[in-house]
Design a protein around this nucleic acid. Structure first.
Lengths: 348, 348
DNA sequence: TGACAATTTTGGAACGATCCAAATATCCTT
DNA sequence: AAGGATATTTGGATCGTTCCAAAATTGTCA
């Protein structure tokens, strides 16, 4: 199809030098004479030469391709994460294969296989729900630098970059306790994931510290998405027992969903019911009410992930490192004193 | 670094056949004997062989890599578009380089150059703001199949897939007119883009048809993002003249921003002021109020784009085609009878 | 059994770059 | 002007596949 590629040999012929010289020019070698370089560069320009990285890779130079697989690109958090990675990958002279597994393990397997065939220099993976150690192990064993982000897969020797899930949620719950909330729900996430486990652990810990026994009906599982959050509100309302006055959510997407669900029932998030998210996606700041959330700086995390992987690729680090990025609670308008209290105040 | 790759030759040695035979097995050729195939397959499995697509490409088979460049991955619309493309690209046995130009033309240029070096079989581009025909032309001329999506670049011979901007906005404005709105704003977008031009044209047309002269102060430019929409509300309010009762927005992101801006000023979107978006991103349905919007089905459009490009690659279509995807107005809760009217009704 | 056809297998030349050792050109120095 | 050091340039092997022409094997039938 595409008019056949111009090769190094044709450039050489055109410039009246050998292909070796052209190669040296391409590599910006200081060995070539300025005049020669100019002549070759001109030929490259004139003939519209495009470097063939595939051919070069064959000789052993590493591929300069980074594979990135995320589980849900429609979740702003992952989109921003990808954008952050993209930024450093690009500026380091690499390109990225970015693919979306859509939480489908089979799909993820195919994607990774395909990426390997293309000779990626490293892989950043935010594993799909249900990914097992057996999916990752062969990659690591083959010597491919692998970095797991956001979600960990227990039992693998891959490096990982996670956020401080437990302390983050703990801070969020404490904030609600300080505001006077006593019945606080934890909303969103699949029970069998490590992220859910750690965040719920932070939730339990904070409640226990305050002398409150966490009651199971206040933990509501759901898909970790906006739709999931909206559904969770419905679930929560159908459960017997006193209603909570606030919810800590698995992530911002769920938190927005909870806000949606509340509004559908004529409850105003922030005023009638406090909602806290996790991630701090762009919209968290601009939404109304602005979302109180545990900020992980998604783009920053993406940048950091890419840097970790690049280091692993270049330095040839063989030992897996596990890094936790610190988080901080950002208080905005979606969390406030419990509704009853503010009523009492207005009465007083 | 990575423990050196197992090659076809080693498989051949292990299976006791020639490399040619192994190659045939890899291509699922019907020429090889079943027993031989089994033996080779076993060796491949045992030695953990990974196909080297780069080496294969050297011989002329096309690369099975599709390059995709979008201008803003943090905009859900583009994220969904990418997800749709990903779906068909994957299932057609291709992989994608997906990169984000972040509306930066230089960045976009670098990305495309890099993709070309990697030998992409085709390119789908949602051009960054400010992309010129000169950026695209050389690509098309080199024989690379190129498909422009969402935004067009006048003066290029590339194929394009756009949405029916004018008719979409026209339907939106008509809907508002039917509800009784007379002062309707058009919000968001850079004045120098074709998308803005077409959509504003639809806006003008609908107003003219209703005998309303479009007044310039009702057209508010802003970045095509959520933040831009929020700012636009501020801009709108500082302008002299009677305030509008409704706004048609460049896209959903802007529409959400407008909703944010309204709420900040204690105006409830849908009730006090009607807002219509364009795109129909996932959140449009779940947001509260659910957003009335011109639906383009982003994922569907992404799928369609990928199909168009693949057809162009495989069939070797040399003529550029320009396709408009149809859109339809989806009426939800963010548009209603103008505030004054509903007041009158409640008085009556 | 021999001839011929059909089925399988195989060596070796590409593909487009890199890189080393060796060849050439240029510059000094005496 | 010769000799040596330095600066440039270059042929050819190599990377891991594909693919063609030809070889080897197996099967069929008179």
């Amino acid at each position: 199809m595409s008019g056949k590629r111009v090769t190094i040999v044709e450039i050489a012929r055109d410039a009246g030098v050998s292909k070796s010289t052209v190669s040296l020019v391409l590599q910006a070698s200081p060995l070539v004479h300025e005049d020669t370089r100019a002549r070759v560069t001109a030929a490259i320009e004139r003939l519209g030469y495009v470097y063939n990285r595939g051919a070069a890779n064959l000789r052993g130079t590493d591929s300069r391709i980074i594979g990135i697989v995320v589980n849900d690109l429609t979740n702003s958090f992952f989109a921003e994460l990808a954008v952050g990675m993209d930024r450093v990958v690009q500026s380091s002279g690499y390109v990225q294969f970015l693919a979306n597994s859509a939480e489908n393990v089979d799909r993820q397997r195919q994607i990774i296989a395909s990426m390997r065939e293309h000779g990626i220099a490293g892989l950043i993976l935010s594993p799909a729900h249900g990914t097992e150690a057996g999916d990752i192990k062969p990659l690591v064993e083959s010597g491919l630098p692998v970095l797991l982000v956001v979600r960990n897969v227990p039992g693998t020797k891959a490096s990982s970059l996670l956020s401080e899930n437990q302390t983050g949620i703990r801070a969020a719950v404490r904030h609600l306790l300080d505001l006077g909330h006593r019945r606080i729900a934890f909303v969103g996430g699949f029970a069998d994931t490590q992220v859910f486990g750690e965040r719920v652990e932070g939730y339990r810990a904070a409640l226990s510290e305050a002398g409150i026994a966490p009651s199971p009906e206040l933990i509501v599982n759901s898909a970790p998405s906006r739709a999931g959050g909206a559904e969770a509100v419905a679930t929560m309302l159908t459960r017997r027992g006193e209603l909570p006055t606030a919810a800590v959510c698995l992530n911002d997407a769920v938190a927005f969903g909870v806000c949606d669900g509340l509004r559908t029932r004529r409850l105003e998030p922030g005023r009638d019911f406090s909602v806290i998210g996790f991630d701090d996606v762009i919209e968290a700041r601009t939404a109304v009410p602005a979302l109180t959330t545990v900020s992980v700086d998604p783009q920053g995390m993406g940048e950091r992930a890419a840097q970790m992987l690049l280091r692993q690729i270049n330095a040839g680090d063989r030992v897996a490192e596990m890094v936790r990025t610190s988080v901080r609670l950002v208080v905005r308008q979606s969390s406030a004193v419990p509704a009853k209290w503010s009523n009492e105040e207005s009465v007083a």
